Amino acid sequence: MSIQHFRVALIPFFAAFCLPVFAHPETLVKVKDAEDQLGARVGYIELDLNSGKILESFRPEERFPMMSTFKVLLCGAVLSRVDAGQEQLGRRIHYSQNDLVEYSPVTEKHLTDGMTVRELCSAAITMSDNTAANLLLTTIGGPKELTAFLHNMGDHVTRLDRWEPELNEAIPNDERDTTMPAAMATTLRKLLTGELLTLASRQQLIDWMEADKVAGPLLRSALPAGWFIADKSGAGERGSRGIIAALGPDGKPSRIVVIYTTGSQATMDERNRQIAEIGASLIKHW
């Protein structure tokens, strides 16, 4: 067993022997301040990774656009098919120029040779490549099948209805392509620590998230040296922004954090800054 596999296998073990965790309302004060600064709703939840206990939450059962955070769930569904012998990570998928959609920095470079399922998941999570996500959605049967996968996990809230990039439209009061912070946090925890996926697939999923290259201005910008984070960000229309993450000190994750916002007129930089400040408060009061 590799060191990384050992780390993920012992996530519940280490967490069980940690000192009790206590909620700190100071972080919620910052979440509410972010709402004021952005002029928009902000949803927040913080779960203990081992027990699933909610440590703090704000608007945990209000719907927010998922945006690209759905790509972690998508690759979880792909990995479940791999575990069941219905898919192979090494299978190569070929596609054409007509398949390319807006923001496809990886797939646009491989029109000639195609990409493997493993490479597509890596591109979808680490670079948020939209064509990679659409190609992977095709392998599982489309958005409705991802929703069905989530329902089978016990998540009857999260739903995907459309493809990239239309799913980022974020129309107010439109339930399409949305989740709730509580539902997303619980589902992410199941994917990373539950028995739904094999140990190898859980490790692969967290490795992809740990290698995320496009979430630097968010929670990662607030992390002290030595902290662990595996995350996936999302951005959408109407001032929408979000991030889902597993993080913790001492090089291992111990909490799940989900943050979503929508309806702001603020710039992307300002949305990023507010999420980073929430992260800084979380870490300060850990």
Rank of each mutant, 00 (worst) to 15 (best):
P25G: 07
P25Q: 15
K30R: 13
K32T: 10
K32R: 03
D33Y: 02
A34K: 04
Q37D: 07
L38H: 12
L38T: 09
G39E: 08
A40I: 00
A40S: 02
A40H: 05
R41V: 03
R41C: 14
V42T: 00
Y44A: 08
Y44K: 05
I45S: 02
E46D: 08
L47C: 00
L47F: 00
N50W: 08
N50I: 04
S51A: 09
I54Q: 02
I54F: 11
L55K: 04
S57I: 12
S57R: 05
F58W: 15
F58I: 13
R59K: 04
R59A: 07
E62N: 08
R63V: 12
F64Y: 10
F64L: 13
F64K: 14
M67D: 13
S68C: 04
T69P: 05
T69N: 06
L73K: 11
L74M: 14
L74A: 07
L74F: 10
A77K: 12
A77M: 05
A77T: 09
V78C: 12
L79G: 07
R81H: 00
D83E: 06
A84M: 12
Q86L: 08
E87A: 13
E87V: 15
E87C: 14
E87G: 11
Q88I: 03
L89A: 03
G90M: 02
R92G: 08
I93Y: 06
I93D: 15
I93E: 15
I93L: 14
H94K: 13
H94F: 11
Y95G: 14
Q97K: 00
N98F: 05
D99P: 11
L100M: 15
V101R: 02
V101A: 07
E102I: 09
S104L: 02
P105N: 02
P105V: 03
V106C: 15
T107D: 05
T107F: 07
E108Y: 10
L111V: 04
L111N: 00
T112R: 11
D113A: 05
D113F: 09
G114P: 03
G114F: 09
T116Y: 05
R118K: 04
R118T: 15
R118V: 14
E119N: 13
C121A: 02
C121M: 07
C121D: 10
S122M: 00
A123N: 00
A123E: 01
A123F: 00
T126M: 00
T126I: 04
M127C: 02
M127R: 03
S128L: 01
S128D: 06
D129W: 10
D129I: 15
N130Y: 05
T131N: 13
A132T: 11
A132M: 15
N134L: 09
N134K: 07
L135T: 01
L136E: 07
L136T: 05
L136D: 04
L137D: 10
L137K: 10
T138M: 15
T138D: 12
T139Y: 11
T139G: 07
I140H: 14
I140K: 06
A148G: 11
A148P: 11
L150V: 01
L150R: 06
L150A: 05
L150Y: 06
M153F: 15
G154P: 05
G154Q: 03
D155A: 12
D155E: 15
D155R: 13
V157F: 06
V157L: 05
R159F: 15
L160N: 04
L160Q: 15
D161A: 01
D161P: 04
W163S: 13
W163H: 14
W163T: 13
P165Y: 01
L167P: 05
L167M: 14
N168K: 09
A170C: 01
P172H: 15
P172N: 08
P172S: 04
P172G: 10
N173F: 02
D174G: 09
D174F: 00
T178G: 05
T178E: 07
P181W: 10
T186C: 13
T187R: 00
T187Q: 00
L188S: 10
L188H: 14
R189T: 11
K190W: 15
L191M: 09
L191E: 02
L192K: 13
G194V: 08
E195P: 10
E195V: 03
E195L: 07
L197W: 14
T198P: 06
T198H: 04
A200P: 05
S201E: 14
Q203M: 15
Q204P: 10
L205Y: 11
I206M: 15
W208G: 05
W208T: 05
M209V: 13
A211Q: 00
A211L: 02
D212I: 12
K213C: 10
V214S: 04
G216E: 01
G216P: 08
P217Q: 05
L218G: 03
L219K: 05
R220E: 14
A222P: 13
A225P: 04
I229L: 02
K232D: 15
K232N: 15
S233P: 05
S233R: 03
G234W: 11
G236C: 11
E237G: 13
G239F: 12
S240E: 00
S240H: 05
S240T: 05
S240R: 06
R241Y: 11
R241A: 13
I243V: 09
I243P: 12
I244S: 14
L247W: 05
G248N: 01
G251F: 04
G251E: 00
K252W: 00
K252V: 01
S254F: 02
S254D: 01
R255P: 06
I256A: 15
I256R: 14
I256C: 15
I259D: 13
I259R: 06
G263C: 00
G263R: 05
S264W: 06
D269G: 05
D269P: 11
D269I: 15
R271G: 10
N272T: 10
R273H: 13
R273Q: 13
R273F: 14
Q274N: 08
I275D: 10
A276S: 05
I278G: 15
I278L: 12
G279V: 12
G279A: 12
S281N: 14
S281I: 13
I283L: 14
I283A: 13
H285S: 06
W286I: 04
